[in-house]
Design a binder for these strands. Structure first.
Length: 276
DNA sequence: AAGAATGTTACATG
DNA sequence: ACATGTAACATTCT
């Protein structure tokens, strides 16, 4: 579920809600595996308690909490992870795996139905995010850089774009959308893209991501895996999707029907008439 | 109603 | 390097 735009939305909401400046007063872990990348739940709670949140940022699909005493908490939501900002009182459902109490009387709740989400508490964030590829919305992610990174790569373009060490932040939704916008077929071998197509892909990736951020993310339905912000708001980017989960509908560019194929075990949506 | 599919990633294997 | 399969899980879809 959460790709770059959704994670950015979460970070923006947390910042707007005044999370930085808070101190963490208590931590409860209900599913040890969530924090196991660092240590036992007890150690995790002990290390985190008392730390102040200095800043909240994003890198790829990671939410990054810069903490006092040179510690960092990185959270990857994987498929169904959610952060919710809530009052100290209130019901805790069975999908809540981590709770962080804050000294302003609120708490940050991590829930994750499929339990794939992971916390990383470390003095060395590079050990977690050091191998990520460039940030697609950074000014240093130029068409030139994309061209260079594509050079000599023979993988299919879709799995390559999903590879976080190639480019950080894209997931299944926005890769399909970007490839449609750039009119590139997902099975194309990366090195066969013309320079014109690479230019087009570069623009498409940035355009699709920026639009989704403007729309506060893509919420697809009302199911448990659906995107919802820490303030429990849905994103409204679904209306902007051109191919993702639109199998059987007319392509907005040429009218040909959208088809679904499987690429690298991921469901993939394309217009075979305009994506070549 | 059983079985398949699901937006992510790490890891193993050829 | 790259493709492919599997596993981590629970819910929803068919």
């Amino acid at each position: 579920m959460p790709e770059l735009p959704e994670v950015q939305t979460i970070v923006d909401v947390l910042n707007a809600a005044g999370l930085p400046g808070n101190r963490i007063t208590a931590v409860f872990v209900h599913w040890p595996k969530t924090v196991a990348t660092c240590c036992t739940p007890e150690t995790f709670s002990r290390r985190l308690t008392g730390k102040a949140i200095l800043a909240v940022r994003r890198r790829g699909k990671y939410i990054i909490f810069e903490l006092s005493e040179n510690f960092w908490l990185l959270i990857h939501l994987r498929m169904t992870g959610r952060l919710e900002l809530a009052a100290l009182t209130g019901q805790i459902n069975r999908h809540v795996h981590v709770i962080m109490n804050l000294d302003d009387g609120r708490r940050l709740i991590f829930q994750d139905t499929r339990k794939f989400g992971r916390f990383y508490l470390t003095p060395d964030p590079a050990s977690v995010i050091g191998s990520l590829g460039p940030e697609p919305l950074d000014s240093n992610f130029s068409a030139k850089l994309l061209t260079k990174r594509l050079e000599g790569r023979r993988r299919q373009i879709k799995p390559l774009l999903l590879d976080q060490s190639f480019l950080a932040g894209l997931g299944n939704i926005y890769v399909d959308e970007a490839l449609w916008l750039a009119r590139i077929h997902p099975l194309r071998s990366a090195h066969t893209l013309t320079s014109k197509e690479v230019l087009s892909l570069h623009r498409a990736i940035r355009s699709v991501l920026r639009q989704a951020i403007r729309n506060a993310g893509t919420s697809l339905g009302r199911g448990k895996g659906n995107f919802i912000s820490p303030k429990s708001e849905q994103g409204h980017n679904k209306n902007q999707l051109k191919v993702f989960r639109l199998t059987g509908q007319a392509c907005k560019r040429c009218g040909h029907l959208i088809e679904r194929i499987v690429v690298a075990q991921r469901s993939t949506h394309i217009c075979v008439k305009c994506q070549l």
